[in-house]
Design a protein around this nucleic acid. Structure first.
Lengths: 122, 122
DNA sequence: CGGCATCCTCCTAGATACTG
DNA sequence: CAGTATCTAGGAGGATGCCG
C-alpha cells in the first residue's frame, strides 16, 4: 500500500497545472498521471489531491484517459463497491515528457514571473 | 533569409496541436514556437502556417507570449509598417520540452488511435 | 500592413441534486 | 462508494468590420 494522497502533495507551484505553461490533455490529466504514478487509486482517493474536484469532472477526465488508453478502470465486485484506476504502459510513457515539462518549470518559472512583472511595469 | 512558412509545414499529424495530448499554454503557442525557431517572422507571415488564424486570435497569442517573456515584438519604422516577432532565450528554452512532447507523439500516437478504436468497438 | 472593437458560439469546468 | 443528471457561468476561439 502506498501513502495516502493529500492536496499539499500536488500544490508544488513548480508542477501544478496553474503554474506551468504545459498541459497534457485537459485541465486535470497531468495531475491524475502524477497521482497514479505510485500505483492504482480509487475514485474517492483521487478527489483529495484534486481539491475535491466534482465527481462529474473527475469522471470525465478519467473516461477520457481510459478512452486514450492511458489507464484502466477495474470494478471490484464487493460491497461497498470499489473501483480502481491504474496507469497502462502507454500512460506511463507520458511521465517522461511530463517530467521534461516540470523540469522546465522548475528552472524557468522565475524568469516568467520576472518577465510578467517587467511587462506590467514598463 | 529563411524559407517561407506554409500551412503544410505544420500539418505533420505527429506534431500538430490537434494530434498530440500536450499543449504549451493556449492553443497556438506551440506552433508559434516552431514558426519562430528559424528566426524572426512578421505578423502576416505567421498567419499562413496557422491556417489563416484571425488577427485577433494571433494578436492575443503573441501578446501573451510577449508578456511571458517568450518572444520580443519589434516595430520597424517603415512604410508600409513592419513588425517582427523573435524568440528570446527563454522562449527557446521551451523547445526542449516541446521536442519531448513531439517525440512522444511520434512514437505513441498510433497506440492512442488503436486504444480509441478498441474502446469504441468493445 | 498590423492591428483593434464587437459580437457570437462552443466547450470546459463547476455547482447542485439524486441514485444503484 | 462511485458515480449520473441538469443547469450555469466563464473564457477561448472565431467571424466580421473598421482604422492609422
Amino acid at each position: 500500500m502506498s501513502t495516502p494522497l493529500t492536496a499539499e502533495m500536488f500544490d508544488d507551484p513548480d508542477c501544478s497545472d496553474r503554474a506551468q505553461p504545459f498541459r497534457v490533455g485537459e485541465k486535470w490529466t497531468g495531475v491524475v498521471l502524477r497521482c497514479l504514478e505510485g500505483g492504482p487509486r480509487r475514485f474517492s482517493e483521487l478527489r483529495v489531491p484534486l481539491h475535491w474536484i466534482t465527481p462529474k469532472v473527475l469522471t470525465e477526465t478519467l473516461r477520457s484517459m481510459e478512452r486514450n488508453g492511458f489507464l484502466t478502470r477495474t470494478v471490484h465486485d464487493e460491497n461497498p463497491p470499489r473501483v480502481e484506476y491504474e496507469l497502462t504502459a502507454l500512460g506511463r510513457s507520458l511521465l517522461g515528457p511530463l517530467d521534461a515539462a516540470c523540469d522546465w518549470a522548475r528552472v524557468h518559472l522565475p524568469e516568467v514571473v520576472e518577465a510578467r512583472t517587467a511587462y506590467e511595469t514598463g
